[in-house]
Design a binder for these strands. Structure first.
Lengths: 94, 94
DNA sequence: CGTACATTTCGATAGTTGCCTAAATATCGA
DNA sequence: TCGATATTTAGGCAACTATCGAAATGTACG
């Protein structure tokens, strides 16, 4: 989860994931959707790829990025467990 | 979610949350559980409090920290939506 | 009152992050 | 092959983060 939460911590990267939620798109399309420069977006895509949140697939000169969500499973379970925990220790139900 | 993922990004802070999952404990007890110094843990606790992940309650000279998980709701829903998205766009089921 | 204890705040430092411009790599089409 | 396009890599800089030791704050107890 080390790289996962790091990747999720940046608003640009979360916005990229939101874009990819709709459909796989190329690095250029992603870059065009933001004010940042292309190298900056490329950097963010690398961070997302290092966290296994996205996968790149080369098609000719284009790189199509798409989501990969298996790595989310552990984080989701951890967060759900955390939420459950408060119920056991938190303020008593009214 | 800005401060939330930032808070969750640190392994020490995640470990603190795991401690608090069991029961509310004092800042001193939390500090004793880690190799870091007391001021360092105090800093982490502040970050967690800024993210609304923990709440401090003063009891005499002690500060008891306990979990507060309402802020997790948005993140959990966002992550679940992300996971759902891949199924719609990802590789076809075998 | 004064001392001890619990916790935070302050000040400094090493390491990290995000962003940019410039340059490199790779692929396609004429 | 040559030039254009798509994307990444490299290098550098400003801002931020984690950590520490020292000092400050606040509370309790004799």
């Amino acid at each position: 989860m080390k790289r996962l939460f790091y990747a999720l911590n940046d608003p640009t990267r979360r916005a990229i994931l939101d874009l990819l939620r709709v459909r796989s798109i190329t690095a250029g399309e992603i870059a065009a959707a933001f004010a940042a420069t292309t190298p900056t977006i490329s950097h963010h895509l690398r961070v997302l790829a290092d966290a296994d949140l996205v996968v790149a697939e080369k098609q000719g000169r284009y790189l199509h990025y798409h989501l990969q969500t298996t790595v989310l499973e552990e984080a989701i379970q951890w967060l759900l467990a955390l939420r459950r925990a408060e119920a056991a220790d938190g303020p008593p139900p009214s």
